[in-house]
Each structure stands twice: as C-alpha cells, then as structure tokens.
Design a protein around this nucleic acid. Structure first.
Lengths: 219, 219
DNA sequence: GTAGTGCATACTGTATGCAGTATGATAGAA
DNA sequence: TTCTATCATACTGCATACAGTATGCACTAC
C-alpha cells in the first residue's frame, strides 16, 4: 500500500505526496480525526519529513487537514454541518457556469454522452464517482472562467469524501445517469433554462440519503 | 522594511511568513512576475529556507504565486483575463449568501453602519479597501455557511491586488458608501430583493474603470 | 483520595548541508 | 554571423540534525 509514489518527474515529491495523501484520505487509510505523525508517515512513504510537511501544508490549505501549531495535523472529521454547508454550493455554481458557457459543440455533447456511458458501465464506485466528476467538469468547462471552475473543483473535492463514503455503502443511482441524459438533450434542443433546471436537480437529488447515512454513522 | 515578523507565538514562522509575504505582494515589495529567490528572501527576512518554503507552498495554494518545479516560485501577474474571471463571482456569491442569511439584527446593522462611517473617514486607500472588505464580510456573515464565506474570502483576497493597485491611483468612490447605505436601508425595511439588487450593483460598479486602468497599465 | 508539580519522552519547528538540475556564457564549427 | 555544444554557476529539492515544546505519568504533599 504505502510505497510507490508515481515518480512523475514533472512533479516534485511534495506534490506527489499531496496526491498520495489525498488518496489515502479518500480511501480511509488515513481516518477522520486521526493525528498525522510526521516521522512515522514519512518513513512509511520512504521520504523525509521536509517534503511531507510541504504536502501537509497543501492539504491544510485544501481543508482536507487541520493544523494545530505545535500539536500537529489532523484529518478533518466528516460533519453534518460541513456537508450542509457544501451541499447547496454546487447547485449555485454549476448552473451559473453553464449559463456563462457558449452553446456546446456536438463534440462536447458526444464527450458528455460517452462519459455518461462509461459511468453506467463502471464496476466500482470509485471510478463511477470519478467519472461523474469528470462529466460535470466537462459540462462546465465551456464557461471559460478558470477561477469559477477552480471553485467548483474545490467544492467537488471537499464533497468527495462524503459522496464516496456514501456511495461505497449504497449501490445507487440510476437516476444520475438519467438526469445527465436530460441535460444533454436540453442542450441539444438549445433550451438552457431546462438544462440548468435539470442540472440543479441532479446536484441536489442525493442530499437526503447522504444526510440519513451521516446521521446513522455518527449517531 | 523586511525584518520584524509579528512574533505571534500562536503561529509558527511559516504562517507568519505567509502573512508577511501576502502583504509584501499587495504592497508591491514583491512585484508581479518576479521570481522568488529562496536564499536571498530567507536571509532578508532572517529565517531559514524551510519555513519560507512552507509559506511559499501556502501562497501557491492561494494562487498568489505560481510554482514551476525545479525553476522556483513566481509572483502571479495581474492579467485582464483573471480580472474578468474574478469579477462576476462576488456578484454571484455574495447575494446568494445574503439570501441565505437570517434577518439581520439591529446590532449587525449598526455594525455595518459603523464600518461604513469608518470607511468614509479613512485616510489611506489601504485601510479603506480593508474596511470595505470587512463590511462585506460582516454583511454575509449571517448566512452561517463557513464554506461559502470561505469562497467569498478567497475571491476577495485574489481580487484585492487589482482593487488595491487601482484604488491607490484613483481616489474613488463616494458611490460605494452610498450603495452600502442603500443596502442597509433595504435590510431595515425587510426588503431582501432590493438589498440583493443593490449589493449586486455595489459589486459590479467599478468594473469598467479598473479594466481601463489595467489596459492602460499593460498596454 | 485528590490535586499539583516535576520530569521523561516523543513530537513538531527550524536550520543547515549536500545533491541534482536549470540557465547563461563562452567557445568552436558551419 | 549563427547555431550548437560544453561547462560554470546558482538555484531548487531533499535529507538530516538539533532545538523547543506539548503531553502523560509518577511522585509528593495535603
């Protein structure tokens, strides 16, 4: 498990570590609330503490970790409050980005359909979630606003821990696929209002089940 | 200039450095496009490279710097494109936050008025901009959504370099004060729609002058 | 039995040194 | 003159060592 950083020569070790740690958090290898021991973790990953600390700094900035000076870094807990804060934001940002977009080309629409097919075919929940994210990023990519796309990506990344943990326990959502199809169809028809409405629906449909799961999980 | 980190014992040097560097960027001591020499800068600030590099990592995450592996960190340029990307976002996020808020208490309204007075009285542009930011944060603080407030703060921080650089050369904006008063009045009247409309106006009124200034500046 | 103090220990914070790589200059050939 | 190759130099990347601090436990006093 631990070893084998991807050894991408374009990235320095700090950045590779940040990617690795992100995965470890999503996969539960680093558990919510856990304190990060820099010495142990750096040894387990076969690097020194310096690049590890730089990676930790990055993850703190991403709010995946919290840092208490002179106490260390901790994996952020999943809380009902954070979930409720995160949840409405995509439904605000994504339709706004879609409206900013130029009319999508047939090529873009074909890509969306292709990703949607892949999602349907995907075996494990992790790739399915990942393809869902790719689908939405493709959808909003036409807005030509890197900062907005960055905000969406941030919210998406913070949300992922909730969505992934939930999806692993519940083999959900034929519905998401169907909603995607509706959105694509509306765009083909040039009906932006309808597309945005379906998008909003797509981004709010799984709130209740996740909330129920969260409540059950932490009592 | 350089020395004297605030020596806040609650923060470690990396975090103090991040604050210091942020200021140096806003104040133009570190110029747009400039390459950061870790050795020189750490010596000038009287620290070693390790905490400096951690601070740089943070600023890269905040998009104040860019990082090119094995080449170093660079102060981000101010570009027309980034400005145009940033500009509409506050007008999307802030009204949304305001709508989420509970009806503001008289205490909150009084605080808003007080900050607005301070703004009017402020001598230098830096404190005026800073009070304007404080005013807007106070306005949206009622939404009880830390993530949304975080996004607004991010956009605000990235925007600050544009607003500050512009404001320094143009002793603007009686209008901002007046718009704030309108918003406060609308809230007092319980007219949320009107408040949001004025807020949107307040957040879009200085686009053209800043754009003109930007174009003139970089030819 | 409980509260408080001192000490051992383990961790984070910071400095420093060395290795590897990008860059610019200089020299040589076309 | 211009292009290329080689080398010197200066910087970033990373490891390591040391300093400072938080924490838990034991011991003592009450």
């Amino acid at each position: 498990m631990t070893g084998t950083l991807t050894a991408d020569r374009r990235l320095n070790i700090s950045q590779q570590l940040a990617n690795k740690l992100r995965d470890m958090i999503f996969d539960g290898e680093l558990k919510a609330g856990e304190r990060i021991n820099e010495v142990h973790l750096s040894e387990a990953l076969g690097v020194s503490r310096t690049p590890l600390r730089e990676a930790l700094t990055l993850l703190v900035a991403e709010e995946a970790l919290t840092s208490v000076p002179r106490r260390g870094s901790f994996v952020r807990e999943l809380t009902r409050k954070e979930f409720e804060d995160l949840y409405p934001l995509r439904a605000i940002l994504d339709p706004e980005a879609l409206r900013m977009s130029s009319v999508p080309s047939e090529k873009t629409l074909a890509t969306l359909e292709s990703i949607n097919w892949g999602m349907r075919a995907a075996q494990d929940m992790k790739t399915r979630v990942s393809l869902d994210e790719a689908w939405h990023l493709e959808l909003v990519s036409g807005c030509d606003n890197q900062v907005l796309i960055g905000l969406i990506t941030q919210v998406m990344n913070r949300f992922r821990r909730y969505g992934l943990a939930f999806a692993r326990e519940h083999a959900i959502v034929e519905t998401a696929n169907q909603e995607h199809i509706e959105i694509i169809q509306a765009l083909r028809d040039g009906d932006m209002d309808k597309a945005c409405e379906w998008l909003r629906k797509n981004l709010t449909s799984d709130k209740e089940p996740i909330l129920a799961w969260l409540d059950e999980r932490q009592g």
